[in-house]
Write a protein that binds this DNA or RNA. Structure first.
Lengths: 215, 215
DNA sequence: CGAAGTTATGGCAGCTACTGACAAATGACA
DNA sequence: TGTCATTTGTCAGTAGCTGCCATAACTTCG
């Protein structure tokens, strides 16, 4: 995969849009790291790319959104992969396989995305607003994944909450894995990916026993 | 328990502060429900209680904070209960027992808190900003709980991520339980409490098997 | 190639959340 | 009652975010 962010073939208009979009993202990440997230204003970001503030808000919902915009691509990949898994497969193996797809995408990203990944992971550490945005992202992905798992099982998320329970538990493990990376300042995709895999494996061997110990 | 919110004995100053605090909360919840969360301004809230806007921000960090302020008391109760559990007890039973303490507190709240609880649950449904605040609350409680569980086990959250994994999984089940209440418009504490208990029981019998099915 | 149509951009005006600094008021306490 | 500590109000300002309309840029089709 050559990266989630390149517009291979498209009209000039579309290519231009992608270019300004990622120029904004890069400018934002650089400024956030240079002078702090809160201290950076939208005006400074748009000045660096020479677009109007109004244009910024046509591309991104806000500061939080631009900071995390890199990751939405990997989320989409995860959900798409999950939807492709064979329906007979149990939930956790399906989730594991789909997670692997997104992890591979992270590992095989081009240099531009890798640089953004590094910067983002360094940013999240010590920036509560961005960390809160992460929570929102995970929650959204969880909703989507739960719907898919429920459909696979032939049930409905409203009628049967068990798919939601399983997905929420799984996603919380993934979230904890990423949080340990941020905490330990592991920013290289090449290091993050095995760390996440390792923590998920640890969850697989820890959680059944932990939940079974309930009276 | 007569409610988390009453200032039994204290100086006049402290009693006055509590009164304005909860007057602000009630005014805010009423306005949020009457004309929508986003459409309600801080100015309208403070006008209803006749305090200055500046005072509002001395009591609450913002709109999101005042909406969820009722729940912080129950969170504190949960964490305090967890810290009191015998160290020999396994994590999930300890978490279950502590959850029961906060659920009992919700059930036995006085009428004022019960009314707030109802309003809040009706508000969260269809108000993404407040729902996002809920996520933050759960994350904070999760951090605190993970530290306690790790200390009980004689380890450290940094050295050993397993306590964090277990707590995150547990809290995600609690969160899913509350989310189903909001979705199904179950707002009465008397109905919410058994629903949460039921979903946690379902998690206990579902999750071990689900996680064990991993290859 | 050029005109007509579509879509992105810029500029502006305005609202609202939120904060710092200082002055005024109000409960606490001797 | 007078002094002290704490809370409150006022004011001015910053910054995120949005609607509106004119203009510029790409696209498409004759």
């Amino acid at each position: 995969m050559a990266g989630m962010t390149d517009a291979h073939v498209a009209g000039l208009r579309e290519r231009k849009k992608q270019r300004t979009r990622w120029a904004l993202v890069d400018a934002a990440l650089d400024l956030f790291l240079a002078k702090g997230y809160e201290a950076t204003t939208i005006d400074e970001i748009v000045a660096a790319v020479d677009v109007s503030q109004r244009t910024f808000f046509r591309y991104f919902a806000g500061k939080e959104d631009i900071a995390l915009s890199l990751l939405t691509g990997y989320d989409t990949l995860f959900i798409a992969a999950l939807a492709e898994r064979p329906p007979a497969e149990p939930p956790v193996p399906a989730l594991l396989a789909s997670l692997d797809v997104s992890l591979e995408a992270i590992r095989e990203s081009d240099e531009a995305d890798t640089a953004r990944f590094r910067k983002l992971h360094r940013l999240i550490d010590g920036t509560p607003a961005v960390a809160a945005g992460q929570l929102r992202r995970f929650a959204e992905t969880e909703q989507a994944a739960a719907r898919i798992i429920a459909r696979r099982a032939g049930t409905d998320v409203v009628a049967d909450p068990r798919p939601h329970l399983v997905v929420a538990s799984f996603m919380s493990a993934v979230r904890v894995a990423y949080e340990t990376c941020v905490r330990d300042e592991i920013v290289e995709p090449a290091d993050v990916v095995p760390r996440v895999r390792g923590l998920i494996a640890l969850a697989v061997e820890t959680l059944p026993g932990a939940w079974s110990a309930a009276p």
